[in-house]
Computed example of a mutant assay.
Amino acid sequence: QDNVAYDFTQPVTGKVTLTARWTRTDTQHWTISPAQGPETGGTEVTLTPPAQRGIRFSQVSLGSSHSAGIGSDGNLYAWGYNKSGQLGDGTTTDRSRPVKIGKPQGAPDGFTWKQVSLGDQHSAAIGSDGNLYTWGSNSSGQLGDGTTTSSQNRPVKVGKPQGAPDGFTWTQVSLGDQHSAAIG
Rank of each mutant, 00 (worst) to 15 (best):
residue 21 R to K: 05
residue 9 T to N: 09
residue 27 T to L: 15
residue 34 P to M: 01
residue 41 G to W: 13
residue 38 P to Q: 08
residue 18 L to M: 03
residue 60 V to C: 07
residue 42 G to S: 00
residue 33 S to A: 14
residue 51 A to E: 12
residue 52 Q to C: 07
residue 60 V to T: 15
residue 43 T to E: 11
residue 34 P to W: 10
residue 34 P to L: 08
residue 51 A to N: 07
residue 30 W to C: 07
residue 12 V to I: 15
residue 45 V to F: 06
residue 45 V to N: 02
residue 39 E to V: 07
residue 60 V to L: 06
residue 13 T to R: 09
residue 29 H to L: 12
residue 37 G to E: 08
residue 56 R to P: 00
residue 22 W to V: 15
residue 29 H to I: 11
residue 31 T to Y: 13
residue 44 E to Q: 06
residue 12 V to W: 07
residue 27 T to A: 14
residue 46 T to P: 01
residue 10 Q to C: 00
residue 8 F to E: 04
residue 31 T to S: 15
residue 51 A to T: 08
residue 47 L to C: 00
residue 36 Q to N: 06
residue 40 T to F: 00
residue 40 T to E: 01
residue 49 P to L: 11
residue 24 R to L: 00
residue 40 T to D: 02
residue 55 I to Y: 05
residue 37 G to C: 11
residue 29 H to G: 11
residue 5 A to R: 10
residue 40 T to H: 01
residue 58 S to W: 09
residue 49 P to G: 08
residue 13 T to L: 14
residue 56 R to M: 05
residue 39 E to H: 02
residue 55 I to V: 15
residue 14 G to H: 15
residue 24 R to I: 01
residue 18 L to A: 04
residue 41 G to S: 10
residue 35 A to Q: 11
residue 38 P to A: 11
residue 48 T to R: 02
residue 31 T to V: 05
residue 59 Q to E: 12
residue 50 P to S: 11
residue 38 P to I: 06
residue 39 E to Q: 08
residue 16 V to A: 08
residue 30 W to R: 08
residue 42 G to L: 08
residue 46 T to D: 04
residue 50 P to K: 06
residue 24 R to W: 01
residue 14 G to T: 15
residue 6 Y to F: 14
residue 43 T to A: 03
residue 56 R to E: 04
residue 42 G to Q: 07
residue 54 G to L: 12
residue 40 T to I: 00
residue 34 P to H: 00
residue 30 W to I: 14
residue 12 V to S: 09
residue 29 H to A: 14
residue 23 T to G: 12
residue 33 S to N: 06
residue 49 P to M: 03
residue 31 T to L: 15
residue 32 I to S: 02
residue 41 G to H: 11
residue 43 T to V: 12
residue 48 T to C: 01
residue 8 F to A: 11
residue 57 F to Y: 14
residue 11 P to K: 06
residue 58 S to Q: 11
residue 27 T to Y: 13
residue 52 Q to Y: 01
residue 36 Q to D: 09
residue 52 Q to S: 04
residue 15 K to T: 14
residue 5 A to P: 07
residue 57 F to N: 04
residue 38 P to D: 09
